[in-house]
Amino acid sequence: MKWTKEIVNHFWFTCRTSTDYKQFVGTLRGTLHHITDQHEWALGRCLHEPLTEGERKEKQWLDAHDDSETLKELASILLNPRLLNKISYYLNFR
């Protein structure tokens, strides 16, 4: 619950900035990294500026180990094939 607003905002940011399917999925997948305080990973990085120490301390980051069930559930929502199959239509007609 503590990340709901940010996840929704990130989804709309993804919708606004992505130009193709691959970029959309990559940016959306970045949500899963971002909420665990990982801003660079093997296949990408967050598009925001580096966070200050104060900004880092403000957030209650999810822990990849302790919150693994929550992250799995979120991944199943964000990466749901029914949602991903509709992205090409959205990108074409927005």
Rank of each mutant, 00 (worst) to 15 (best):
W3L: 13
W3T: 12
E6L: 11
I7N: 00
N9F: 10
F11T: 12
F11P: 01
W12Q: 06
W12P: 04
W12R: 06
S18D: 00
S18H: 05
D20Q: 00
D20M: 02
D20K: 08
Y21A: 00
V25N: 00
G26W: 00
T27S: 09
R29A: 10
G30L: 10
L32V: 03
T36L: 00
Q38Y: 09
Q38A: 04
E40A: 10
W41H: 10
W41D: 08
W41I: 09
W41P: 02
L47N: 14
L47Q: 07
L47G: 14
H48V: 01
E49A: 11
L51R: 12
R56V: 03
K57W: 02
E58N: 12
K59G: 04
K59E: 09
W61V: 05
W61C: 05
D63Y: 08
A64Q: 07
D67F: 07
S68Y: 11
K72H: 07
K72M: 07
A75N: 10
S76A: 11
S76T: 12
I77F: 05
N80S: 12
P81G: 03
R82T: 11
L84I: 11
L84G: 03
N85G: 09
N85I: 03
K86R: 11
I87T: 03
S88R: 15
Y90L: 15
